[in-house]
Amino acid sequence: MRLLEDFLTEQEIQQIDAVFDSQSPRFDLLVATSGLNPISDFRFTDLRHLDFSGADLRGFDFTGSDLRKSVKNENTIIDQTTVLQDARIDWIEADALPIVMVMRKAEEARNSTERQDVLNRLVAEFGRTPHVIQYMVLAASKAHSIEDFIDFALFLPEVPSKSDAGKLRKSAEALLKRKLAASKRRTRREKTSVFAVESLTEKLHQNPGSLAQRIYGYLADVVNAKPQGSTLTGHANIEAADLRKAFARIGT
């Protein structure tokens, strides 16, 4: 029996790696990274619900493809070289806001979902350029709560620069300390502060390839290294101290 992975060539695996590791999810840049051919590989394909914000679609052949419910904005470039013959189109038009406006919206977001949506758009359209990363590091360092910090960490690269890591670690440790202290104040018991960490750990592993996911990995290492007595079979017993240790490893 031959499995799918058995007949993927070395080159195809490298192409998949390139897509996974790409810092820019902008469609045209991803295509260039993937090695797919805009002239031949996008004909008669299902391209629904994709984000073409800011993408340069000149030279793409979408003949017979389904592009319904895909997003484009004023910065999406479509001209006479974009082939849309027999394509099913029902664009969702998104606002093309200047980058500064998008950044401000991320900081003014009323809740986590709204912030993640805005950050999603920021990264999708402008990519993880040094400018965008610098902004997110700064915003995460100024975050008011550990939850806000994780929102930014979900979009930060897995391995930040040394200087960025230092800022992020300092901010995260202070915010976590505050969160755990507040949790303990409410219940007056050290043990119950663990309830505060549950929602945080759940949030950390939502975006592979991000700093948040890396912190989740550190947490797994910390829990795995604990003596057998404090782990139940098949279940991880995460304590507040484990989370502190995991956040303290940012940039190490």
Partner: peptide, 24 residues
Amino acid sequence: RMGKSLSEWQNKNALVGLLLKKAI
């Protein structure tokens, strides 16, 4: 995962899908 709500992974998944289709 929240992958579905992340256009980053929607775009990436679509391209990985096309690479797998090409291999098939």
